[in-house]
Each structure stands twice: as C-alpha cells, then as structure tokens.
Nucleic acid binder design. Structure first.
Lengths: 299, 299
DNA sequence: GGCTGATATTCATGGAAAATGATTTGTTTT
DNA sequence: AAAACAAATCATTTTCCATGAATATCAGCC
C-alpha cells in the first residue's frame, strides 16, 4: 500500500470524480484509476462504485477512515520538518541549576514568546547527569560550563562569565595562602561548576583543603558573605547586580581561573529538529545582546 | 515519503543495525541505507547517528513517533481487510420493525456470539428510508420485504413468510367482498410492507377502501383481533406461536399474495467488508436452519 | 600503529512499477 | 438515438527501486 494511493482515494472520496482528483493531485486520470485499482486488488475489496456515480463503497469508506488518520499523521510529521510551523513539537533542554537561574530566564522567555506552541521542557541537574541525558537522546541539548569531552557533539559558546572573589571587606590583592587555609568558602552544592572553580582556585593558590559551606540559594550565599562568614566565587555581573543590597566587595581572579564559558551542547546541527534550530537561533540572539550590554545583566 | 521507508526506520530504531533491519524486513542492507538516506534528504534532517553506534537522532525519534502512529493505523487498516480478525470494524444494518422483531433476534444473536468484537448497529425504519440509507452508504445492508427496484444491488432471499388472514372466528373461505367492505383491518403503521399486503389483498378482492387501524405492537394487534375487532394479516409462524394465548383462527391467503420474501439487500459482494461478509454468512446459516425446521420459528 | 572483522556507503545495473497520452467502453443527457 | 462526458484499457516512456559488488569507515586487538 502506498501513501499516494490513499491520497488519491481521499481525493476520489471528496470530489467524486477521477478526473477532478487527477487535476487536484497533479496527475492524469488513468493514474488515478491504476492506483485505486491496485488498492482494490491488494485488499481484495471493491472500494469505489463506478456504475454511474463515482462514490466510495462502504468498504471504501472504512478504509478512508484509516486513510485520514494515516495521512494526517503523515502531514503532521512533514510539517514538523519542512514547514515553518513548529507546532506540536517538543524541545527538551538540560541545564545546571546555576545556569538556569543565571542565564536561562531571558532565553526561555524569548523562545517561548516567539514559539509559544512548542512544548518546552527544562531538566536541571549536575553536569554529568546532563551529558548522560544528552548521549542517551533524552534531551535535545544541554548547557554546560566548560568544554565537553565527548566527541561528535556540536558545542557553541553562548555565555561568558568573569568570576570574581567576593568578600565582606575590600581586597587589594588575593588573600595569602595562610589566610586561605583558615578561610571559609561558600558555594552551591556539589556538581555545580562554580564550586569546582573554587576548588581550582584553592589549588592554584597552593591550598589543598579549605572549609566549603554548601548553600542552596544565591541570596543566602551573598548574605553570609556580607556577614563576614567567608568568601565565595561568583560571576561579576551577578555580584554587581546585588552590590546595592549587600555590603560586599570583589576582586578579580587570575585570568585562567576567572574565565568561565558556558557552552550549549547538542548533536550535530544536521540532526536538529526545526524547534531545536529555532531555539539555538534565539539563544544566539539573546547571547549576542548580552555581550553587547553586559552591564544590563545579572541575576 | 514511503511507508516502506518508515518501516525501515522503525527497524533501525529497534535493532540499532542496518543489516539486522534488512534481514528482519527481507531486503538487503544497501536498500536500508538508500531508504533512510532518502528520508533524510526529503526532510532535510539527519535521522540516524552513524558514527560508531547506529541509533536515531532526536529528529529521528521525533519522526519515529509519527511513524509508529502511521504504521499502526496502516496495519490496522490492512488487518481489517486481509486478516481474519474483524476487530474494530463496524457493521450497520437496517431493517423494518417487523423484520427486526420477527426474524432478526436469532441472526443478531448468532452474529454477535461469533464476532463479539464487531460494533454492530441496527437501524429500524420504513422501507423507503432504509433504501435511502443504503444508497447513501449509511448502512452496509438492509432487510426489505419484496424486491428492491434499485439496480446494481445484491439481493438475497433470506426469509420466506406465508401470510394468513387472521380472525377471531374460524374461517372456511375468504370473506365476501361485501363483508370486507365493512370489515376493519388491523395493521402496523404506514411503511410496513405487511400493511401494503393488506391493501394488496383488498384490491385483489375488489375492495378499494376499507378501514385500517394502525397499531404499534403485535400483542395489541392480536388482542384486538381476538376481541373480534377485525381482521389482520400476519405470517403463519407468528400466528401459530401466539395461538395458545389468543383465541384466533387463520385462513390461507391466495398464493401470490400470501408469499412474502424478505431479502437482504446490500451493495455488490465485491464491495463487502469482511465484517459484512461474515454477517451474510451467519445470516445464511440461520436462514437455512429456519427453513429446515420452520415450526420452531415464530416471534 | 597497523591488522582484522564487522558494518555502512557508494555505485552500476537490471527490472519492476508508475506516469502518461491515445483509445475504447460505458453512462448520462438531451 | 446521438452527443457528451467520464472511467477503463492499453502501449509506451520514464522513473524509481532493489540488488550485489566494491569501497570506505569504525571497533577491537595484537
């Protein structure tokens, strides 16, 4: 059985004429005859009344019901890829908690505003779990901080953060190794890449182990830092956005440690569904406007 | 897009291998490649990851969802015509009230017993309306008394009734024309073919107009006849079945008038759905057993 | 690092099936 | 009865598909 045959059958059902069907579907009448005839032979049932009026038999109508289901599903699938419409399609994105809070709101808002008909799902979790989801095909794309070691993946730098050391008191230089040994650091929970940066920073300063407090929210973290509880490491934009609320000060970190790039990782662009392609478009636009006026940023 | 391509895609999705898919679907591996490739070109999207593991891309998974809907609908449609299963099919039968009451119960019971999965719908109404339904394709077949004038229809004699004149008193011969002129006849409502027989009988006896009472139920009719209200015309089997309840007597009618054949009318057998073909089979069996032991009949 | 087995791609080819236009057949209309 | 119309049939062209052999690519392994 052929989709084309079903389409011709529906044409005959609607027009009641072989020639009209042929015109409508851009073929010739004899071809319509041949297709219908083949369908009938295949099913062993006469589908169309020919004597005089051309109309479907009850068997033809029964088949037409299925044909309608089949063809509408087919059209829907086609429109998913070919058409500009992304209606009914699903887009599953994964991101870390920090990225979700820090960068995604404007992206998601812009995308949902432009394509409200897309069923957008956001999964949050630690990087390892996100990458696993991606490789299993459970999500269409994920946001990760730093490069992805997995090969064969499309990586696109979308956000760039400058991390700064945050403290309650003004700092002119990095704390001494001795100070760091006794200091307390405040960080998000395990699995967050910013926390990994803190550990990287400590290693860079020759400190092997320091006390790290895990906090669940940015406000709690900043509040504790302002209270003199210890240090933390955050994007500069974030600190600046909250500086008027807390008496906090920041110090630039050494360049290799300060620079954190957030990448969007997905399969190769050739495999993208239209919805994903649109999402990446939106993402690029938002990211571009972010870098043009970074001072407007922050959480 | 081709159904075969979708089937191959599903094969690849399930087996994760082109060769396995080719074996499973009885073709060669290069053909699988060609189909998938054509699908990809058609949709402008890569559907299958090739590097190393063969598995669907997210776009491929999206298409697979539709493919599953399409193919299952297709299989269902095929099984409707090809398979022995008639599950999910619908059968719409039309019949007059009298036929429904008199003859259909054993037929419907037998059919429903044999094929409980068929959605059986019974429409009752006057003959004219039934024929209209049939020509419009709203029913698969109808029971009619006497021949159908419409051409191109399959007609099959299924029941044969001997009509008798019914009265409260024993009759040795047909009432005289004078007696008939003043007599009252009891009949079903307009549109019933038995009523038409009464009018035919009266015309045959040279009586142009007689009083005809319309009653809605068989019991009411027989009761009124037993009470001496007038005559009626009914199948002999029906009268015999009720004779023990009412003091009624019957007289054979002239052969050409007495004989009423009930036909099953439907489109040509070539157009029958399997469900309809099974129904006709059942109908023939029941009708055959009826004629073998007609005394067991009756309402 | 190169070998080996397995798997996918590419390509040429024969063959099957589809599309086409001319013609015939059948039905409806006048 | 004839004309007008629509579908079936048929012969032909064309396209597309299935096939198998050769080639390329990727894993595992010595």
């Amino acid at each position: 059985m052929q989709l084309k045959s079903l389409r011709l059958l529906m044409g005959v059902a609607e027009t009641g004429s072989f020639v009209a069907t042929a015109q409508r579907l851009h073929t010739v009448q004899s071809n319509v005859t041949a297709h219908i005839k083949k369908l009938e032979e295949e099913l062993g049932v006469q589908l169309v009344h020919r004597s005089g009026q051309v109309r479907l038999t009850t068997a033809g109508m029964a088949l037409a019901e299925y044909a309608e289901r089949i063809l509408s599903a087919h059209d829907e699938a086609l429109s998913l890829f070919k058409g500009d419409r992304v209606a009914g399609s699903r887009l599953r994105i994964g991101a870390m908690e920090t990225t979700t809070a820090l960068r995604l709101p404007p992206v998601l808002a812009a995308f949902h505003g432009a394509y409200p008909e897309v069923d957008l799902q956001l999964h949050t979790g630690p990087t390892a779990s996100l990458v696993e989801r991606l490789t299993e095909g459970l999500v269409d794309g994920v946001f990760v901080a730093g490069h992805l070691d997995h090969p064969h993946y499309h990586l696109e730098k979308v956000f760039s953060e400058e991390l700064v050391l945050v403290s309650a008191n003004p700092m002119m230089a990095m704390p001494t190794t001795e100070a760091l040994l006794t200091a307390t650091f405040l960080a998000f929970r395990q699995g967050c890449s910013y926390r990994q940066r803190i550990e990287l920073l400590l290693a860079h300063c020759g400190v092997s182990a320091a006390r790290i407090f895990e906090l669940g929210s940015l406000d709690a973290m900043l509040g504790c830092v302002a209270a003199g509880m210890g240090y933390t490491v955050l994007p500069r934009a974030t600190v600046e956005a909250h500086q008027h609320r807390f008496g906090i000060h920041c110090l630039a970190l050494p360049a290799p440690i300060a620079q954190v790039d957030t990448y969007f990782a997905a399969a190769q662009p050739a495999t993208w569904t239209p919805a994903l392609a649109r999402f990446v478009d939106t993402l690029r636009q938002v990211a571009a406007s972010d870098t043009r006026r970074p001072e407007a940023e922050g959480v």
